[in-house]
Design a protein around this nucleic acid. Structure first.
Length: 153
DNA sequence: GCCAACGTTGGC
DNA sequence: GCCAACGTTGGC
C-alpha cells in the first residue's frame, strides 16, 4: 500500500532546484536529527511512496514539487563525520542513531502551493503541516489530502 | 530579528 | 522521574 509524505528543506541549504541538479535527480535526505522523523524514514517510507518537497524558512514557504522514495531507510553517514554540520558523536556506526532515505525528483510544480494557501483551506482537517506548532521535517500526508493538494497546482 | 512551540539535556 | 534551562525550528 503506497503511502504519502512531506519533507521540509530550507532552499538556502538544499532546495528543489538543487535536487533537480543532482545526478539522477536523486539525493539522500540526510541531517534529520529528530526521533519521530527518524522513525518515519527508518521504518515507514517505502520505495515508490510519493513525497511532497516543501520549502521552509524562506520568502514563500510552501510545497514546490513531487518526489518518490527510491531507497528505503539506511544509516545517515553524515552523523559519523566530525567535519559534517550534522555530526553526532553519539551515533555509532555499529549502532547508528540516525537514518535517511533517498528521494528522486519527479517534477517541480509550476507554482508554489504556499503554506498560506494551505492554511486558508477548510478541507485539510488534521493535515500535519498546518497543525499548530508542528516542526517535524518529515511527516505523513493522508492520501485524500495528498491528492487534493496535487489538484491545486 | 523576534518569539512561540516544542524537543532534549541534565541536575536533583 | 520531574522539570528548569537551553537549543532549534520556522513563520512572521
Amino acid at each position: 500500500m503506497k503511502r504519502y509524505w512531506l519533507v521540509k528543506s530550507e532552499p538556502d541549504e538544499f532546495g528543489i532546484d538543487d535536487l533537480a541538479a543532482m545526478p539522477k535527480k536523486t539525493e539522500h535526505w540526510d541531517g534529520v536529527r529528530n526521533y519521530q522523523a527518524r522513525n518515519t524514514m527508518r521504518d515507514d517510507m517505502k520505495k515508490g511512496d510519493e513525497v511532497f518537497f516543501y520549502h521552509s524558512n524562506c520568502d514563500v514557504p510552501g510545497i514546490v514539487g513531487l518526489c518518490t522514495v527510491v531507497r528505503e531507510g539506511y544509516p545517515d553517514h553524515t552523523a559519523f563525520d566530525p567535519d559534517d554540520k550534522h555530526y553526532d558523536p553519539k551515533s555509532d556506526p555499529d549502532n547508528p542513531r540516525w537514518f535517511m532515505v533517498d528521494v528522486k525528483l519527479k517534477r517541480k510544480f509550476k507554482r508554489t502551493i504556499s503554506l498560506k494557501e494551505l492554511k486558508a483551506r477548510d478541507d485539510l482537517d488534521g493535515f500535519a503541516l498546518t497543525r499548530k506548532g508542528n516542526r517535524l521535517s518529515v511527516m505523513e500526508v493522508d492520501k485524500a489530502h495528498f491528492e487534493l493538494i496535487l489538484g491545486l497546482e
